[in-house]
Design a protein around this nucleic acid. Structure first.
Length: 512
RNA sequence: GGCGGCAUAGCCAAGCGGUAAGGCAGAGGUCUGCAAAACCUUUAUACCUCGGUUCAAUUCCGAGUGCCGCCUCCA
């Protein structure tokens, strides 16, 4: 296993050789959601990105301790609770449940720990007290703020300088604070808000402090990787650094990893633009793995423009992957049952019709795959290695079936290749969770309206017509059979005669 | 205003100093009553423009154009 991973570090804005603090253990923290609404595809991208990183590091033999938190106390949750005449606790636990459903549906593996902010309040209070003692924070009437001026490295992650931040300020200065950049560590609670006792009276934690507290509680004062969406760089992660490093005097995080945003029509997805798409919107219509693969095709740091057309394309690619694995399974069955001969004499076999193929070495592909993943988790490149392999295995199988013979070197390569395909797709990318045969069949049966156009279909009527047409076909009355197919096509229904009967799908272009 | 990112075939997207991965769509072929599906083959000789460095640039540097993000809660 080649562990020379290069990771793009937001701190240095460059790729750095990854060296974990402990030789065989990786400490990783990823900022989770604020639980007040259904997860959107931006969340999906973030957590799929880190899921792949998590899976890959484990595959390289690292023992990864992975923490992904929940923010279950915050302004937005309080607002939602008020709107729905509910409680903060009920709202957050509801959306945590929904989130888990989505994560499971997307085959995102469970982190080692999933702490909630509200379970870590005492740790936060300790942290804040320590910061006050050290002069890094101050209290004003029950609120506690972090004194940004006290941390000389402020801005090192987002590469901003404090003076310019002040000059470019878009928000009104809070007169109470010493400096408008100072951020809340502890907020005095208002009436009817959840609150906790603290040395500064009843209140609740500010947002940033929770991640520092949870990271330190579960992983220690210094960790290897801290990740999240690129929108968290400033101010959230910048603030985390300030708090944590002021408190411990140690380096908080060695590698900061941030994933790029999901755009809709080339614009940022946001609630205010009313263009946000939930995970449910996608997986109601497409296989969850299509979303995963859609993300894998683009490097995690790039923007990605979401469209159902793109998912459709990814779905087709996914089908190709399943088809390849299925073809192999069928082929193995064929070898067993009927007689495809495995020839040992490579030279003569190839002369007879092996196609002059040069024997392949699976190690080259494995190496290319690893080198790609080691280069800042370049999944797009790694997946292209897999597709190369797919073409090779399909070809070997096709040639062998046509000639009724397979040379032993090809047979060995084929076995090794398919097992690598399966293992890397499922192990690293989290794909191929379904049985290939089932996946393919359900896909052909699937009534898809391409491009997001829904079509009304009278299923009974179509089934009757299909039966009628098959009668004609049995009697070799092909003209009448074609007539039925043609009439359905005009309504946007495509018939397909497959090995397991006649199926149909819609073109999505026409309305019934 | 400050900081940062991006611009590669019809679409999506890797590559980032040695002459363009991969996917989708399209075309041709194999198979099939015909089709479809599947599989194979095929698809970039100005890599936004103009300069520069170099034996060599899509890749580095400079200028320009066009998109986008952060600077406010946000994955």
């Amino acid at each position: 296993m080649n562990r020379n991973i290069y990771i793009y570090n937001t701190l240095s804005l460059s790729k750095e050789l990854f060296k974990p603090i402990n030789e065989n253990r990786v400490l990783m923290y990823v900022c989770g959601i604020t639980a007040y609404d259904l997860s959107h595809i931006g969340h999906a991208r973030a957590y799929i990105t880190f899921d792949v990183i998590y899976r890959y590091l484990r595959r390289l033999g690292y023992n990864v301790v992975y923490v992904r938190n929940f923010t279950d106390i915050d302004d937005k949750i309080i607002k939602k609770a008020n709107e729905e005449n509910s409680t903060v606790e009920k709202i957050s636990s509801k959306y945590i449940d929904e989130y888990h459903k989505d994560m499971n549906a997307l085959y995102i593996s469970n982190p080692t720990y999933e702490p909630k902010a509200t379970e870590t309040i005492p740790d936060m209070i300790n942290l804040i007290s320590g910061l006050i003692k050290k002069g890094n924070a101050y209290e004003i009437n029950g609120d506690v703020f972090f004194r940004v001026d006290s941390f000389k490295d402020y801005g090192k992650l987002s590469h901003k300088n404090i003076d310019e931040l002040i000059a470019g300020s878009r928000i009104p200065v809070n007169e109470e604070k010493e400096n408008f950049l100072d951020f809340a560590l502890w907020k005095k609670s208002k009436e009817n808000e959840p609150s906790w006792d603290s040395p500064w009276g009843k209140g609740r934690p500010g947002w940033h402090i929770e991640c520092s507290a949870m990271s330190m509680k579960f992983l220690g004062e210094s960790i290897d990787i801290h990740g999240g969406g690129s929108d968290l760089i400033f101010p959230h992660h910048e603030n985390e650094i300030a708090q944590s490093e002021s408190y411990t005097g140690k380096n908080f995080v060695n590698y900061w990893i941030h994933n790029g945003f999901v755009n809709i029509n080339n614009e940022k997805m946001s609630k205010s633009l009313k263009n946000s798409i939930t995970v449910r919107d996608v997986i109601d219509k497409f296989h969850p793995e299509a979303l995963r693969l859609f993300f894998m095709f683009t490097h995690y740091r790039s923007f990605i423009d979401f469209s159902f057309k793109g998912i459709e394309s990814a779905k087709q690619s996914l089908l190709r992957l399943y088809q390849a694995v299925n073809l192999y399974d069928e082929f193995k069955k064929l070898i067993k049952e009927s007689g495809i001969t495995v020839k040992k004499e490579d030279v003569s076999a190839r002369a007879e019709g092996g196609g002059g193929r040069t024997p392949e070495n699976i190690e080259n592909y494995k190496n290319d795959f690893e080198v790609s993943m080691n280069d800042d988790f370049n999944t797009a490149k790694a997946i292209s290695v897999i597709f190369d392999l797919v073409r090779k295995t399909n070809k070997i199988i096709n040639d062998s079936m046509a000639q009724n013979v397979i040379i032993s070197k090809d047979a060995a390569f084929l076995d090794a290749a398919v097992s690598f395909i399966k293992e890397s797709l499922s192990g690293v990318f989290g794909l191929l969770n379904d049985d290939p045969k089932r996946f393919i069949e359900s896909n052909l049966m699937n009534i898809t309206a391409g491009g997001g156009v829904y079509t009304y279909i009278d299923e009974e009527e179509i089934k009757k017509l299909i039966d009628k047409r098959n009668e004609f076909r049995k009697n070799k009355e092909y003209a009448s059979a074609d007539e039925i197919r043609k009439s359905l096509l005009e309504k946007g229904i495509v018939l397909e005669d497959t090995g397991f009967g006649t199926t149909y799908k819609t073109t999505g272009a026409k309305q019934l």
